[in-house]
């Protein structure tokens, strides 16, 4: 996914003359460095200083520039207060591209893995939170993100990117979810690479004559209340899946809508602890049970509840 980000942001530099790419010594790791090859004068490496990075971007934005900050999700969180007090309070046009989110930095272990960032960003007034499912959705959404005014947190992974949305044709719009599969007995709502598992489970449930919808909730804030309400009414059961702590993440965001619009039982699949090192992101998702098996168990549990 970082590869897609690096390539696409470099393409967008021609169209957006004020676009600047900023990083804190992770230009190679985030692939932000691709932008430097084309636009060396609009690329800044501020050194290993994330707090300064965010406020430097805020200052650039205040003069009318379009700064895109690229960094590891985890280490951008040490600038949470800068994001809150300067970027969001002043409603500045700063785009924060957080790579290596979730377990995607599988080898580095828990210090580098970000399982709390959606909660931390979602709570901030004026901040929008976007989580593309795969590289194809990065291509669809990144140009839209740059045209949308105000602060946006754009959460991507590292390299693992199964083809979730590749075969789909739709335009990405902020605040609009994508129905990847329709269904009437159960809905699985997910964000990010874990939607791969959601689609697999939906197919299996379908073979068991359980009509299962899958929704790609790319924008976690502002969340698509309409699609959530529609599917809560239609299916009466919701399972969420996220590569993030279940506290404050996508599952929480969906629940906040459901309790208000049309209360139905919900099960949340996600993390509840820090991660660890492994050989791959996939291995970690299975190790922490954020996968098709957990989705299947949660789905069957909900189906038993109501029948």
């Amino acid at each position: 996914m970082r590869e897609a980000f690096g390539r696409i942001i470099s393409e967008l530099g021609d169209e957006h003359k004020d676009l600047m790419v900023l990083t804190a010594d992770v230009g190679n790791s985030t692939k932000a460095v691709y932008f430097r090859e084309k636009f060396p004068n609009r690329y800044f490496n501020v050194g290993i200083s994330e707090q300064h990075l965010i406020d430097f971007a805020a200052g650039l934005a205040a003069t009318g520039k379009l700064p895109v900050v690229a960094g590891f999700a985890m280490f951008l969180m040490r600038a949470w207060e800068q994001i809150r007090n300067t970027v969001c309070r002043m409603n500045l046009n700063v785009k924060i591209v957080a790579t290596h989110s979730g377990y995607s930095d599988y080898n580095d272990g828990s210090s580098h893995q970000s399982l709390e960032d959606i909660a931390l960003m979602r709570v901030l007034p004026r901040m929008k939170v976007v989580v593309p499912a795969d590289s194809w959705e990065v291509r669809r959404s990144l140009p839209v993100i740059l045209r949308e005014p105000g602060p946006i947190y754009y959460r991507i992974g590292r390299d693992y990117s199964p083809p979730i949305t590749e075969s789909f044709k739709y335009d990405f719009k902020i605040g609009e979810a994508t129905v990847l599969k329709d269904g009437s007995d159960l809905v699985i709502i997910g964000a990010g690479v874990v939607l791969w598992d959601a689609i697999k489970v939906a197919e299996k449930l379908e073979q068991m004559n359980i009509s299962t919808a899958v929704i790609d909730m790319t924008t976690i804030k502002p969340i698509d209340e309409k699609v959530i309400e529609t599917y809560a009414r239609k299916t009466g059961r919701i399972v969420t899946i996220e590569e993030h702590n279940v506290i404050g993440g996508l599952g929480s965001a969906v629940s906040e809508v459901v309790v208000k619009k049309y209360p139905v039982p919900i099960r949340m699949v996600g993390a509840s602890d820090f991660g660890r090192s492994a050989r791959s992101q996939r291995e970690l998702l299975d190790y922490y049970k954020i996968n098709d098996k957990s989705l299947m168990n949660a789905s069957l549990e909900l189906l038993r509840l109501k029948s």
């Binding site: 707090q51 430097f56 971007a57 805020a58 200052g59 650039l60 205040a62 003069t63 007090n85």
Partner: peptide
């Protein structure tokens, strides 16, 4: 601690 960083961004902008 945030004013100088913002000022650096404005000055460069």
């Amino acid at each position: 601690g945030q004013g100088l960083s913002f000022g650096v961004g404005v000055a460069e902008g």
